[in-house]
Design a protein around this nucleic acid. Structure first.
Lengths: 193, 193
DNA sequence: GAACGAACTTAATCTAGTTCAATTCAACCA
DNA sequence: TGGTTGAATTGAACTAGATTAAGTTCGTTC
């Protein structure tokens, strides 16, 4: 599996020396996951920060009534996982599963720590990644507070048109914060227009 | 105004040398704001990242129907502002106002850039700050998706008991994603119990 | 100290979205 | 080839929370 893509993604934000690239490559673990397979599970401590290379993952929370709530769909170039569990070694409240056959890179906790300690450029890189992610999370909160379900769905398909091919509708509904039944109604209404 | 508190807050996460402390102190601008005064306004480019020293601020989004949606209340020790506007020099979609007479430190954009460039420790510091903030934002999304308004209110007063003294109820309602009228009903219901 | 406005409350009515239950549809696979 | 299973759809009944509008409380100002 070619690690070139991770490097390319990272170099969109920071410049890496040959040594930094080689070190990163030496600590990333390649992994293939087939559709519906779990990478991380609720209740266990997350040991890896996950970078998607091919396919599609989803990270979600299951509440005590058994309902799933999707916090993220991750396509190639995205990091995912439970940051709290990963950084603080707490049992995870999320699960991460493959929605399609996928290939990912795993960055183990200890290696991430050394990476950050030894090479300041990775501090910068993850500072930028988390900063951007924080911005998009704030915007998602705002959309949830200020837009109707229909508006949020339109925004979603507009913004992530490629996701519909991987993601069953019920998980899109879950990500939008509505029931699959209601999403179905919205879709019919939009078709009729 | 004593800059010791900012330093103390930062040193909860990273260790600073004397030089780093002095440089930071030399670029922070102290500012007093009185109740209801704006620090940043929608439509203008955010020039400062704001650190609260005393009092309480709120950062909120106003939608095109004129409704406000609070994304953050900031009390002493917290950073606030519109990160997207600040880092990408875009017009801000948020406003930041004082809910009480407050004192803050302003970190101007250019100075933040040099700070990050010159002293890797600040990359680490902000990486940690953004990472933690990202975690809490994800949790807030999950609460909005999985809990009732009453549940979210209980969580809020439980988690931020001191905020009620500064924050008018209508802004708590806004933060929870409900109307002031409905929050009023919830409160009565809880009183009667 | 009257008058004003802003925050909060109350109650009636309304609606966006849920719940539940039945039906269809497609994929898998033995 | 037919049976099973889970995803999507449909529709009826329901509810959490919104909307509207009127009233209350209270601090501020002239």
């Amino acid at each position: 599996m070619d690690s070139g893509r991770v490097i390319k993604n990272i170099e969109q934000h920071v410049h890496l020396t040959q040594e930094e690239k080689e070190y990163l490559e030496s600590v990333l673990l390649p992994m293939k996951v087939s559709q519906n397979e779990f990478i991380e599970e609720t209740g266990k401590v997350t040991r890896y920060f996950i970078h998607v290379n091919e396919g599609c993952l989803m990270t979600y929370y299951t509440d005590n009534q058994g309902n799933d709530h999707v916090i993220q769909f991750a396509t190639p170039g995205w990091w995912t996982g439970d940051l709290q569990s990963f950084t603080k070694a707490m049992p995870s409240i999320y699960s991460t599963r493959a929605l399609a056959d996928s290939s990912v890179w795993l960055l183990p906790k200890v290696q991430m720590d050394t990476l950050l300690d030894q090479y300041p450029v990775f501090e910068k890189y993850f500072r930028i990644i988390f900063q951007n992610s924080l911005i998009t999370h704030q915007q998602r909160i705002i959309r949830n507070l200020s837009m109707s379900a229909e508006g949020r769905y339109q925004y979603f398909i507009d913004k992530y048109p490629t996701l519909e091919q991987f993601v069953p509708q019920k998980y899109i509904a879950s990500h939008l914060g509505i029931t699959p039944e209601f999403l179905s109604k919205i879709r019919r209404k939009l078709m009729e227009k």
